[in-house]
């Protein structure tokens, strides 16, 4: 039986999905904080938010890079 493969697929799914969702959610949260009226440092928060979105995008691209056989040879 292929239990190990099943476990790998489940684990990989969990790790990748959680990474993307956490990064994006942090980005959303930081944007919301930056948008507050009495935010301490809106500029910082905004750029941190963008960094989160960018990291999230990178995570997705890295995943695609791993999957597309053209790149991984």
């Amino acid at each position: 039986m292929k239990w190990l493969e099943l476990l790998t697929v489940g684990g990989a799914t969990l790790v990748s999905a959680v990474t993307v969702v956490v990064l994006y959610s942090l980005g959303v949260r930081l944007t919301a904080m930056g948008g507050d009226q009495r935010a301490a440092a809106p500029g910082w928060l905004r750029s941190l938010a963008y960094a989160c979105f960018a990291l999230c995008g990178l995570a997705v691209l890295f995943g695609l890079y791993l999957i597309i056989p053209y790149f991984s040879g």
Partner: peptide, 20 residues
């Protein structure tokens, strides 16, 4: 929707890549 799609995409890509 975002959470659901992320899970769907990761599950499909992971499974088709890892052979299950």
């Amino acid at each position: 929707g975002f959470a659901a799609e992320t899970s769907t995409a990761s599950a499909i890509l992971a499974s088709s890549h890892l052979g299950f």
